[in-house]
Design a protein around this nucleic acid. Structure first.
Lengths: 319, 319
DNA sequence: GTGAAAGCGCTAACAC
DNA sequence: GTGTTAGCGCTTTCAC
């Protein structure tokens, strides 16, 4: 900036102001300075600004990126959230620092002005690690689990309830829930599911499941059909599980949906294009990402911020 | 650091050295300083270090994150790459700055020490935008397209050739390629595909297609079957297209694979769990991400870096 | 093994 | 509308 100032015949601070479009600087002066900057290939130094302003203008986004072919956070889930987050954060002037919880925490990540955590993790362990960073924090996950935190999540309770209502409307009597309630979001879905069922005196079976893959879903359902051959409805906490479940049902000569109704969760392209096309509970991840970004910005600005629950709806297809 | 120095009875520079585990500092001094830092909740200021070192210790990763339900870079593609990149970059001390090409370029992104571009884009437009940033650059895409750039890509030519070989082995006579050659990677696949076919005097049909969704794939194949009812083999440049294609084939009473052989690309969970399970060309995205990260680090360190092609193989399932 | 001095490039505060 | 002064928190260089 000092060099530009010399060339343009002004002082460094005027250059600074001109490049930031400060109204304090004469439009012609600004135009001249910008032109000089362009000519000389001037590159703004963000670190210097960040040092001076005592902020980094970054938000760290913590994602689980374990590279397994059938992963936990499958398909579009994190990428749609990331899309919404990035779009919103970028337009607010913040950069997105992508991080996983593996390995040590880098200085740049520690220096983030705020943190968005995608998924609380089983038993909220991810949340507890990130809290120790002592930065403004917004979490994507189960809203009901944390009064003390700002959490954005979709209405998992209602999602579960919608599925139960459909099962009841179809006259199903022996529903099963597939998912690990150690994850808060899954627990909420189960609670909503059971709350509706119990009004009719029905309780869902909840076989233990610790993995969220197609094959895990298939394995559990194979087992299940041994002991509970009359099962007539399956609510899977993810589309992946649902697809595995359908596979096991077919193997065991159950027709879907005639003999067994199956509903998944997340409404992924994977489920939508499956044959038969999977019924599933839809979440709007992009919108959720935008909201997460808004909240973390507000939190950074010192505003008081509330948790939020996003609406959810059931997409009925062929299962 | 000055405060810590006062408390620990040393100078600021010694604190700096102690916290960086410099061998220059006495182990006991270091232990004392670290303890004081812990007690006082000292937070390292990355911006100050970056200013002084004249590097940002970040690498910008440019991804297409258009939030459409059936997106171009579908499913695990970007996320697996991102996983590999993040893992490797983090262990090298770099943070990952996630960016899309939409909107203006933020100061922090401009200040990145290097850039990884995921996908050249149609007609390499994405590449040209990013080149203007004037930072070290590594691209994921079509290696053959850019001698002047460092490109990491999987062996698309060989991928296409493998599919052609399988079609020939099955005695197929009227193969069709589904994909837009405006994208370099797709063009390479088509070239490999045709190179093998032409050795038997066969030329693939390449109906125009401008979108990479299930419905686009279905639409093209519906059209195709009108004019080319004898089509007996389809090579789709993505699993999404392949699934759409199969849908249209079934609608038109073609059996897969008896009447028409179909092979997709990317070997996504979506394809693998489809019914029928889709045959597809596999790419190892995580490994690719690690390699991209290694190359950008080398480039930043001023080493000379070559483009690289990763091996590819055909996974034969039921189609 | 430790320290003093200097400066990275920017901007807020306060003149004028 | 523009300029002067000062300092953000760190690390390199050179001295001891």
């Amino acid at each position: 900036m000092a060099d530009l100032a010399r060339v343009a015949g002004v002082s460094a601070i005027t250059v600074s102001r001109a490049l930031r479009d400060s109204p304090l600087v004469n439009p012609e002066t600004r135009a001249r300075i910008r032109e000089v900057a362009r000519q000389y290939g001037y590159a703004f130094n963000a670190s210097a600004r960040n040092l001076r302003l005592r902020r980094s203008m970054t938000v760290a986004v913590v994602v689980e990126m374990k590279p397994t072919p059938e992963r936990q956070m499958s398909g579009p889930y994190p990428l749609d959230l990331l899309g919404g987050i990035t779009q919103q954060l970028t337009s607010a002037g913040y950069s997105v620092l992508l991080t996983s919880l593996a390995g040590e925490t880098l200085p740049n990540v520690q220096a983030a002005d705020g943190v968005i955590l995608l998924g609380q993790g089983a038993h909220e362990d991810a949340m507890h690690s990130v809290q120790r960073w002592g930065r403004p924090l917004v979490v994507w996950g189960a809203v009901s689990r944390h009064q003390s935190q700002v959490v954005v999540g979709s209405d998992n309770f209602r999602g579960g309830a919608l599925v139960a209502e459909r099962f009841l409307a179809l006259g199903r009597q022996r529903p099963v829930f597939l998912g690990d309630p150690a994850h808060g979001e899954f627990a909420e879905r189960l609670e909503g599911f059971n709350s509706v069922l119990q009004s009719r005196g029905i309780t869902a079976l909840t076989p233990a499941i610790d993995n969220f893959t197609v094959s895990a879903g298939a394995a559990v359902v194979r087992q299940l059909l041994q002991t509970q051959p009359q099962t007539d409805a399956l609510f899977a906490a993810s589309d992946l599980l649902a697809i595995g479940a359908i596979r096991a049902l077919i193997e065991n000569h159950r027709r879907v949906p005639e003999d067994v109704t199956v509903v998944g969760y997340d409404d992924t392209p994977l489920g939508a294009t499956y044959v038969p096309p999977l019924s599933s509970v839809h979440q709007n991840f992009t919108e959720a990402g935008v909201l997460l970004a808004r909240k973390i910005c507000d939190l950074i600005d010192g505003q008081s911020v509330q948790s939020a629950t996003l609406p959810t709806h059931l997409v009925v297809r062929s299962t």
